[in-house]
Design a protein around this nucleic acid. Structure first.
Lengths: 208, 208
DNA sequence: CGAGAATATAGACAACATACTCACATTTTT
DNA sequence: AAAAATGTGAGTATGTTGTCTATATTCTCG
């Protein structure tokens, strides 16, 4: 009934109302992503983030009640970006090879800005109380795209769940490894990753 | 000429001479591996390690000049273990499928004790000045096993380097993902990972 | 065996880093 | 010009690394 906004209080201490403060919040999140990506969770300090964003530490705590809520905002933004990229690569009725190519390209693009952010968010940064659901939802939607693709292209029907999981973690492993070496845009690697996907999905169950 | 021992001074402050202190050092390294695996690099504090090892902080610094030299010792021990496991899975003249099975089994075994230690050591924990060489050497020997296997089983000769890299990072990705979920011993997963390896190595270059 | 040397352990402490607060300054809106 | 929103940065409480000295244990050798 009231005009009160339903946005969670735990996420932000204060809602930014003017354009100026919205820019501040954006700068903090972007700087946070940068610090997290380059220095890892251990090097992710609120003071460094405030510095990198060009704002004072006080301003940071004006909008984020604590460190975790900041990393939560970063996580949310990054996962949304990745999901949309993946989703659009996986829709439609393409032949397997085309799907694999677009998937690989999408994954590489999604990791080009902050190469190690994804892995840091997944492995190092702790998830806070309220984020479990969001995180699980992301993982689930993420896997769904793989499962759908696997179901579409694979001959055998059994173990589609497991196959999707293996495929997604294999792709992530390759992307992650390439990101660590600054090799994300090596064309050899793209080609081989596409081959791996095609070979596994189409060939699985033949030589058993 | 002198009887001075050539062991590096930077690794240990004092060489443990009595059995008691050798046990202490071992306990510290083991506790360190445990803390690193369960709490990650950010939670890896010297006090926690000393506590977990059941020794005082003073004892820890008696043998390790600083935090990095401790993580270095952990790294060395763990990588030696993994390498020996991999090496013995990859020797001999087995058919591809048998090689893949033993490789997968070996990787799973190597990660069963401290499931996430490998990833933490690779991604989170910083390498110190002197360890770059050792680390590179490990990576290189590690890749060599893959490259040898790839060269042995693949039909096409080109891009063996890249194929080995893609394969190893894919395997690591799957293992790592399973470790995070406590699914390392799910038999489905083992089977699918074996299939992935076989499909990629044997099928690569067919549908191009 | 037993005294003194060598080795090992303990934990208080100094120096520093980090998360987060608070009283106040500045800018924008009304 | 009053009020609301935004921005500031020194300051506090807490935790971490690594040192130092006192104490306990083990070894060596007459």
């Amino acid at each position: 009934m009231s005009t009160r906004i339903a946005k969670p209080r735990s996420r932000m201490r204060k809602q930014p109302r003017q354009a100026r403060s919205r820019a501040t919040v954006e700068a903090i999140i972007e700087a946070g992503a940068h610090v997290l990506s380059t220095l890892g969770w251990a090097g992710f300090t609120t003071n460094k983030v405030a510095d990198a964003a060009g704002v004072s530490i006080g301003s940071l705590y004006q909008y984020f009640p604590d460190k975790l809520s900041l990393v939560e905002a970063i996580r949310r933004r990054h996962f949304d970006q990745v999901l949309s990229v993946i989703a659009e690569s996986a829709e439609g009725d393409k032949p397997l090879k085309r799907f694999a190519q677009e998937l690989v390209r999408g994954m590489i693009d999604a990791h080009s800005i902050h190469p190690t952010l994804h892995q840091v968010l997944l492995d190092e940064a702790p998830g806070d109380r309220g984020s479990r659901a969001a995180h699980a939802s992301f993982q689930s939607r993420y896997l769904d795209h793989y499962t759908a693709a696997v179901a579409q292209y694979r001959r055998r029907r059994k173990d589609n769940e497991t196959v999707a999981r293996v495929l997604s973690s294999a792709v992530e492993g390759v992307i992650h490894n390439a990101a660590r070496r600054d090799m994300l845009d090596a064309p050899d690697l793209q080609k081989q990753l596409v081959e791996l996907i095609c070979a596994y999905v189409s060939g699985s169950g033949r030589s058993a």
